[in-house]
Amino acid sequence: MASLLDPILQGLLLGGLYTMFAIGLSLIFGVMRLVNIAHGDFIVLAAYMAHAVLVATGWHPLATLLIVVPVMAGLGYALQRVVLARTLGDDILPPLLVTFGVAVIIQNGLLSAFTSNALRLPSRELETASLALGSLNIGVLPLLTLAVAVALIFGLETLFARTAIGRAFRATSDDPETATAIGVKTPHLFALATALCFATIAIAGVFLAMRSNFDPFAGPARLLFGFEAVIIGGLGSFWGTLAGGLILGVAQSLGAQISPQFQVLAGHIVFFLILAIRPRGLFPKTA
């Protein structure tokens, strides 16, 4: 049992990163029923952006968030207003295909600009720092990742539950036509939701870049991990997304105990298991 304690703990910490991948997906699906296939590629784009800022300024990797978050949020707002708004409707093919096209463009654009060599954000002392907890070692960076993920979930949950904009998000999600009739500016609101999603993408990108190598084609796997976390947790609930991320992290970490090749596969298997026994996820929104 004791030998499983460490992988479970490391899995929970890894789950923090997966939660970060998932938050934005959960958010824009909740507000406008949109699935962005390029979600993971935007995470990788944010990682490259952070790398460029770091090279240009020599700042601490975490300080790059000051630039990457607003730039990505602005990009998200513009993407929704200019491109994605034209694809919303009853037919789900256009948003899916357009974001698929965007994914291919980002991947190959990054490949042309930065080659396929893997990069990493050197996070200096953060990379090796750890806390001892009895016989267990907890890396400070993974712990920080999990803490930030939980803070993001808490922040979004509060935003949705307690603020005027959160009310407007929920109302528009329930019934866009009536919300519009009441005076909600839905195009602006959708773009705000996308901007918020892209802010979480930026944070996820910076933490990904500090924790592991990334290359132009690292995006799709991030999309799939985020997607699995959302489905495992259940659609429409941010705390569910956190639970989904943690479960996926633990599943992968335990899978890696069997063999390193088994890590990602174990996550996929848990995803299909949940789909088989609880198709609506563990904590679906009660309607």
Binding site: V83, R86, T87, L93, P94, L97, V98, F100, G101, V102, A103, V104, I105, Q107, N108, G109, L111, S112
Partner: peptide
């Protein structure tokens, strides 16, 4: 052209979806 060619194809698909479904 490698990567450029895929970018062209992706852009074409997006344009078709947006303007001529």
């Amino acid at each position: 052209l490698g990567a450029i060619y895929l970018i062209v194809l992706g852009s074409l698909a997006i344009l078709v979806m947006l303007f001529s479904r």
